[in-house]
Design a protein around this nucleic acid. Structure first.
Length: 439
RNA sequence: GCGGCCAUAGCUCAGUUGGUUAGAGCACAAGAUUGUGAUUCUUGGGGUCGCGGGUUCGAAUCCCGUUGGCCGCCCCA
C-alpha cells in the first residue's frame, strides 16, 4: 500500500489542519503587528558553524546537517536566534533603534518525537535589539501574553514564570562561589524541579559536595515565588549589584502590573533556562494545569551578537512553537475550524446553461467573490445540497426556464428565499447582497 | 542513544483455541429523484491485515526481525 511515507516527525497539513495553522499564524502576526514589531524572514538552510558557534559542537547531533554539493557543511535551521542576530549584526549601524522584529518560520531538529515535539515545527520569534533596560522585557512579555490572550486563553489557562540569571550569579557570588561553580549550581537549579536532589550530581562530580549551608541557601533561593520574599532574601547581603538588580525587578513587575498583566506573571527563581547564552531576565510560559511542556521561552542575550563576530548589542527575545500551543488550544476547545466558505454557488441546468453561466462566474470571480459550481452535470437536488455544504450564502440558478426569460434565479440559502434578476443585473445584486444590504 | 505499549478500509474499531472468500459504523461515491438543501432506503469503490522471514496442511491470529506510531528517559537552542 504505502510505498512512500513522509519522513518520521514531519507533518502534512490537509486543508482543515492548515486552516487551524493559518488561524494561529494570523492571530500571532496581527498581535505582533499591534505591538509595533516588523516581520522578517531568512534562509531555511544555514552554515553549520552558525549553530556550532552559538551552542557548541555537540549541537550537530540534533541537527539535520549535511555537506552540500559545493562541499559546504550546512544545516536546516533549528532556531531563529543566530540567524536574526546575523541579520541585525550585519546592518546594525543602519537600523533604527529599538529594533523590534518578529518572524513565523519552520524549524527542524533531528530528535526523538514526543508529545508536543516533532522534527519540524513552526515558531513565532519576537526580539528587541538595542535596548538594555527592562523596557524591552516589558514589551516582549506583554506581547507573549497577548499572543495567548488573542485566542481567548486567560490567566486560568497559562502563566509566565519570570527569573533572572544575573540575580542568581550575583547571589552565588555573594555566597562565595566562583563562576565555574556558579554555572554548575545554576545547571542544578534548572534541573531541580524535575530531578530533585539528583540535580546536584554533576556539581558534586566536578567540585565535590556543595557545602550543606550553601546548599540550604540555594534551595531556599530557588523556591522564591514573590518579589517580597526575594527582597527579604537579598536585604541582608551587602553590595550594590543585588540592590540595583532588585530595582530592575521592581520596574519590570511594575510595568507589567500597569499593563494589567500582573496576574499572568509569577516570580519563580526555579527557572533558569538551561544553557548558555542568556544573560539576564529569563521567562517561560506554561499551562496552568501543568500537563504540557513549556509553551514559550525567552530571555535576554546581550552577548550573543558579539559572540557571532559583530559589535555587541543588547537583545531580548522569545520563541513559541505551534505544537504545544496547538495542544493547549485543543484542550480548551479554542480551535475553530475556519476553512474559507464559498460566497456564491452556481446551479447549472445543463450544457447550454453552463456556457451562459461561465460569463457571470468569471465576472464575479474577477470581482473577488469566491464562486464555485459543479464541474459535471448534476441533478438540481444534488446541486442545492452541494451549495448548502459549500457554505455559500447565495445560489445562482442557471436553468432552462430562467435563461428563456433572460433572468437568473438568485436564492438566499440561509433565508431560503428566491428572486429573479435580469441577467445583466446579476453582479450588481450580488455586490449589494454582500455589501450588507441583503435583498 | 535507551525503555514500555501499539500497528486490520480515509477515520474509529471488531475479528473466537490458528480454519472456507477479513467485517461493522462513520466518511466518500452512484441510484431511488430531469427543478430546490432534510430524513430514509438500495448499491458501490476502497485492504498484499505496516513490511520481511519463520513455524504449520493452513497465519490478521504464534515466533523472530524490521519500519512506523504513541508515551516516557537523555536533550530541549
Amino acid at each position: 500500500m504505502a510505498q512512500f511515507q513522509s519522513l518520521p516527525g514531519f507533518r502534512e497539513f490537509y486543508p482543515d489542519a492548515l486552516a487551524r495553522r493559518n488561524h494561529i499564524f494570523r492571530l500571532w502576526r496581527q498581535t505582533a503587528g499591534a505591538y509595533g514589531f516588523q516581520e522578517y524572514d531568512a534562509p531555511v538552510l544555514e552554515p553549520l558553524d552558525l549553530y556550532k558557534t552559538k551552542s557548541g559542537d555537540e549541537i550537530e547531533s540534533q541537527l539535520f546537517s549535511f555537506t552540500d554539493k559545493g562541499g559546504r557543511e550546512v544545516a536546516l535551521r533549528p532556531e531563529m536566534t543566530p540567524t536574526v542576530c546575523r541579520l541585525v549584526g550585519e546592518k546594525a549601524n543602519a537600523l533604527k533603534r529599538p529594533i523590534k522584529w518578529f518572524s513565523i518560520a519552520e524549524f527542524y531538529r533531528y530528535e526523538r518525537m514526543q508529545k508536543g515535539r516533532g522534527r519540524c515545527f513552526f515558531q513565532l520569534n519576537a526580539d528587541i535589539f538595542g535596548e538594555a533596560g527592562v523596557e524591552a522585557e516589558t514589551e516582549l512579555i506583554a506581547l507573549l501574553i497577548q499572543c495567548f490572550g488573542a485566542f481567548g486563553l486567560t490567566a486560568e489557562d497559562f502563566y509566565v514564570r519570570l527569573s533572572d540569571r544575573n540575580l542568581w550569579f550575583y547571589y552565588l557570588e555573594a555566597l562565595g562561589l566562583d563562576e565555574p561553580r556558579s554555572r554548575a549550581v545554576l545547571s542544578a537549579v534548572d534541573r531541580h524541579e524535575k530531578m530533585g536532589d539528583d540535580a546536584f550530581k554533576d556539581y558534586t562530580d566536578q567540585f565535590g559536595a556543595l557545602d550543606s549551608g550553601l546548599k540550604t541557601k540555594v534551595l531556599a533561593f530557588l523556591q522564591i515565588k514573590s518579589l517580597a520574599t526575594l527582597e527579604a532574601a537579598v536585604s541582608s547581603i551587602p553590595g550594590e549589584k543585588l540592590g540595583a538588580r532588585l530595582a530592575d525587578w521592581r520596574k519590570l513587575l511594575g510595568n507589567l502590573t500597569a499593563m494589567s498583566l500582573g496576574k499572568f506573571v509569577e516570580v519563580d527563581l526555579g527557572v533558569v533556562r538551561g544553557l548558555a547564552y542568556y544573560t539576564g531576565f529569563v521567562f517561560e510560559a506554561f499551562d496552568r494545569k501543568g500537563e504540557l511542556r513549556a509553551l514559550a521561552g525567552g530571555g535576554r542575550y546581550d552577548s550573543l551578537i558579539g559572540k557571532l563576530g559583530y559589535n555587541d548589542m543588547p537583545a531580548v527575545g522569545f520563541g513559541m512553537g505551534d505544537m504545544t500551543f496547538g495542544l493547549l488550544l485543543e484542550q480548551r476547545g479554542l480551535t475553530p475550524t475556519v476553512t474559507q466558505p464559498t460566497d456564491v454557488y452556481v446551479v447549472i441546468g445543463g450544457e447550454a446553461e453552463r456556457q451562459a453561466a461561465f460569463a457571470d462566474i468569471q465576472s464575479l470571480r474577477s470581482d473577488g467573490y469566491r464562486v464555485d459550481y459543479p464541474l459535471k452535470d448534476l441533478a438540481f437536488g444534488k446541486q442545492f445540497k452541494a451549495a448548502g455544504e459549500s457554505g455559500a450564502k447565495l445560489a445562482l440558478v442557471y436553468g432552462g426556464e430562467e435563461l428563456a426569460k433572460g433572468v437568473v434565479r438568485i436564492r438566499d440559502l440561509a433565508a431560503r428565499t428566491e428572486m429573479e434578476v435580469p441577467r445583466d443585473q446579476v453582479s450588481v445584486v450580488v455586490r449589494d447582497f454582500f455589501s450588507g444590504g441583503a435583498e
